[in-house]
Simulated assay, not measured.
Amino acid sequence: MGRPRGFDEATVVRAAAELFSTRSYDGISMDELVTHLGVHRNSLYKTFGSKRGLYQAALRWSLEHDVIPLIDRVSGAGDLAEALRVATGEPAAEVGLNLLLLAAVERAPVDREVADQLAAVLAAFDQAARTAAGPRNPAPGEADDLAFALTAAVLGLRMRARAGTAGTDIDQAGAALARRLDHHT
């Protein structure tokens, strides 16, 4: 019988998600992961198989615990403006949305599994926005267009905030866009 694991896997995966949400996959070495997570290299390899295995576990965890709950709240919003306010005003979802953005830009083009996970989550986000738009009888295709625009706006605002562009305030920008939507829906 082997030695019992000396770390809590869920805690390590959550901490890895936080780290992967701050920098690129290729920009984080195994040495940094070992140091940041406080887990021996051999234990990480035994549990996750590789850096990619840890990354996949962290991405799955973040999508499930950060992004999907946000999508559920967007779906429950009364209209698109409220959906935008919910999606841009959720500090708890920051790690998940940051990791989603990094995964979309750097890993999805080279990793089919990541691409498939993100496609499913983005489709769910679009569906939540369609649900939030409500039964206002849009023209054919309009609900899909609005849903796509909302998802793109949320991710675009998150990207600008992440970039630290001077004068970028995600709450202010989200509120301005939500006010505009309030006038047109």
Rank of each mutant, 00 (worst) to 15 (best):
V154G: 00
A16L: 08
L122V: 13
D8R: 14
R14G: 04
E64Y: 02
H183N: 14
R5H: 12
E90G: 00
N137T: 06
L99T: 04
G38N: 11
D26T: 15
P91G: 07
A133G: 13
A87R: 13
F7D: 10
V34K: 11
G156R: 04
A16P: 07
P138M: 07
H65Y: 06
H65G: 03
L84V: 12
A129E: 02
V114E: 02
G49K: 13
E32V: 10
A143E: 11
P91E: 14
R160Y: 06
A15V: 02
A83M: 11
A93F: 13
L84F: 07
H40F: 07
R85K: 10
V95Y: 01
F148S: 08
Y55K: 00
T131D: 11
L155N: 02
A178Q: 06
N137E: 08
Q127I: 04
A147S: 14
H184S: 12
A17H: 03
E106V: 06
G167S: 07
H184P: 03
G134I: 13
L150N: 05
N137S: 10
V114K: 02
T185I: 13
A166H: 08
R180H: 14
T47C: 11
P91W: 11
G49T: 10
L157P: 00
R162L: 14
H183G: 09
A81E: 07
T168D: 08
S50E: 08
E18R: 05
A128Q: 02
T88L: 09
E82S: 05
G2H: 13
Q56R: 06
A120H: 08
L33A: 01
L100G: 02
L59K: 05
E94V: 14
R112V: 09
F125E: 03
H183L: 13
G6L: 15
P138S: 04
A17L: 10
D111Q: 05
N98I: 00
E64W: 02
D72I: 15
I71H: 00
A87T: 15
R107G: 00
D171E: 11
L80P: 04
G27W: 01
A149T: 15
P135E: 14
D145E: 14
